[in-house]
Simulated assay, not measured.
Amino acid sequence: MPQAGWDDDALRFRPPPAVTLWVPVVVAFVVQVSAAIGISVWQDVPPPLAALSVALGAASALALVGARRWPGPTVAVVAALSTLDLFVPPDAGPVFLALAFAIIGAVVRGARLWALISVGLAWLVAVTASGLIGTPWHPFRIALATLGLAFLFAIGEGIRSRRQRGAEHRAQLVERRRTLEQEERTRIARELHDVLAHSLSQISVQSGVGLHLFDREPERAREALANIRSLSATGLDEVRGVLSFLRGDDLSAPRTAPLTPQPQLAELPRLAAQRTGLGLTVRIDDRLGGSAPAGEVQTAAYRIVQEALTNIVRHSAAATATVTLERHGGDFVVRIADDGTGLPEEAVEGGGIRGMRERALLVGGTVDVEPGPRAGTVVTARLPWQELP
């Protein structure tokens, strides 16, 4: 059951459902019953008629108990009881608050048609019967009562409209939160993929080579094991850095391990050195002339190169891979070309290529993956050049 509290979306206090149900019942009962008794005594109404007036006031108030579950029938019952009370002494009977609560509640809860038909028929019967069995009502009284009923309907429509706007606003906030959460999950997955995929794939390759050469060429096997140790240490440091960055930790605080959550272009030679070996040579062709784009563009470029080299190691039997960095007007162009057998279809359509495109899109760029002019694959990333401040 919903509890009372502050509505975070509407920034207002929402009382518990029991309060909104029973407060109208209690208020209408106390006002109508006490007023019927007082007016009957004041006008010296015969006891049977006074008792009937009190009973009608009590019954109409208690009928509001069903307003939440059956708003339509409730307003019909209260309208009928209110009409009957108009013709029961005392003439200046109490104001039927129950009818006001029933009309507003029915409109707010979606029983507008019930309210219109019930109140309209009750009002028509009251006006017609007043002329047939007694003195016709004064036109001013009819007009005032009609305006009062219309005002109650207007209040109900206003509350209903406000609730609908609030519900739509809350739905939009929920959808916005869901979208932000999904974007955050995607970002975390992308960061961890970028950090782990290249290290684990290289470790897998190195371990396979080490096992294959363990007996025949122990020195090369030892070299592979050393590379595995270096790659695992680097990967662990990068995972710690990414997790700290995602948690929003203070990166200026002293740590026991280096953190590298946002690699830059200056780290590409180290990446190339890690990839070089076991039949693959990675070269960096830097044509930027010492200039460099903004940090976020550098990070995107680094991650794209990292993923492209990982794909070459995993899927392409390449001997050489060349990473070219250059500037074409307002674009920072990063090209990774290899002379291998090319990427299989599942790799081109997989999460790695998609991650590269998402990286580029985040900074307003694009990534194209095409077959090489003679062999292999060419990955071209075009990122907007943004000068360092």
Rank of each mutant, 00 (worst) to 15 (best):
A126H: 09
V239Y: 14
L11R: 11
L132H: 04
A171M: 09
R176A: 13
R314A: 11
V23I: 13
L121Q: 07
P94V: 00
P293W: 04
A301Q: 00
T341H: 11
G352Q: 07
A300H: 03
A257M: 05
R229A: 15
E183I: 05
A58W: 10
G330A: 13
F140P: 02
L288S: 12
L200G: 06
E346H: 13
L196R: 03
L49P: 15
P24L: 07
A150W: 03
P261M: 01
G105K: 02
T179K: 06
V75P: 04
R12C: 12
S130F: 04
S252C: 08
G289P: 09
Y302D: 05
H198T: 11
R216C: 03
L149P: 02
A4R: 10
W70E: 06
I304Y: 00
H138E: 10
V33K: 00
E168W: 13
G57A: 06
L225S: 10
A318T: 07
L52P: 04
P46M: 01
S244V: 12
V333T: 01
V19P: 12
V378C: 04
A360K: 00
A59W: 00
V108T: 07
W6R: 15
I142V: 14
G340N: 02
E345C: 10
A375D: 07
L265Y: 11
L116I: 15
P89S: 02
G350E: 10
E370G: 08
E217N: 13
S60Y: 13
H169P: 02
I284Q: 02
L132N: 09
A308F: 10
G110W: 01
V239E: 10
R176P: 14
E184A: 09
I228W: 01
R112Q: 10
D7L: 01
